[in-house]
């Protein structure tokens, strides 16, 4: 007697989950058809198709400029956050010291603190230091947010490898630098590379801090989108959104496939 009831429950569960899955994945995808609309409005679904909004995107210096700034800031953040984060992860895994838990907590605090408060404080600081709308300002702000995304995977790969390999290299006569370059680095490379890619994506997507530290002279792509959404109904935003979606998807798939392959080789 219980069987049909159980089957009904199961059916209901899977139906429910399919709906939740749709709700999770579908909304972001609607920017793709919208970017191909032929009308200068956000009306959805579009009734005719054209690529004029992409032409518009690449012919408008402010959109292209924003894309270039985003790519440049993202690349710099990937470098800065990866170096700082990898060094910190090495310090945290290689030595036990008093207050280590506190240091961990502080390094990860930017993930929990309300971003809006940090953003306004940063605005006040950069206002005085003349860093508003500068590449340096953006790189500092984004690197702080990107740090945990480097520290966590690098720590994981540092914990995952056999430290006797380093001792073995030392016994074979390698000095510290050679050991690091030839033994440690190749083994933690997956963690470092995925950390760098996550750092890039974090910076490329960041919007709240950027809104406060931007200036008309330097805007990243999400900031330009934000300003455009509040001001006008121009589907060029949808074209920009589709480009961001495409780029971050490619990068994240790269990370995932890269890690999967590394794991299989081992």
């Amino acid at each position: 007697m219980r069987k049909p009831v159980a089957r009904m429950w199961n059916g209901a569960l899977w139906l429910f989950c399919a709906l939740v899955a749709l709700w999770l994945a579908a909304p972001s995808l609607i920017v793709i058809p919208l970017s191909l609309t032929d009308k200068p409005s956000f009306s959805f679904p579009p009734t005719g198709w054209s690529t004029r909004w992409y032409t518009n995107f690449f012919q408008d210096p402010s959109w292209v400029g924003a894309l270039a700034s985003s790519l440049q800031v993202g690349a710099l953040v990937a470098i800065v956050a990866t170096i700082a984060g990898t060094a910190a992860a090495a310090a945290l895994t290689r030595s036990a010291f008093r207050g280590q838990q506190t240091v961990n907590a502080i390094l990860l605090a930017p993930m929990i603190a309300p971003v809006i408060v940090v953003a306004v404080g940063l605005y006040a600081l950069f206002l005085r230091a003349n860093l508003l709308g500068t590449t340096l300002g953006f790189v500092i702000a984004h690197s702080v947010l990107a740090l945990p995304f480097v520290i966590i995977p690098v720590t994981a790969s540092l914990n995952g490898f056999d430290r006797r390999l380093e001792s073995a290299a030392a016994m074979c006569g390698a000095n510290r630098w050679t050991t690091f370059r030839q033994v440690t680095l190749p083994l933690v490379a997956p963690g470092v590379i995925s950390g760098a890619l996550f750092a890039f994506v974090t910076s490329f997507d960041e919007v709240v801090l950027s809104l406060f530290i931007q200036s008309p002279y330097l805007q990243t792509l999400p900031v330009k989108m934000y300003a455009s959404v509040t001001r006008d109904t121009d589907p060029t935003i949808a074209a920009a959104a589709t480009l961001i979606l495409g780029l971050t998807t490619v990068l994240t798939l790269t990370i995932t496939l890269y890690i999967a392959r590394r794991n299989r080789v081992r």
């Binding site: 972001s28 995808l29 609607i30 920017v31 919208l34 956000f42 997507d205 959404v229 949808a238 979606l245």
Partner: peptide, 15 residues
């Protein structure tokens, strides 16, 4: 959603 930018998703909800 993790690798979809917050700005893109919010824009999608505006639509």
């Amino acid at each position: 959603p993790f690798w979809t930018s917050l700005m893109v998703r919010t824009f999608a909800w505006v639509i």
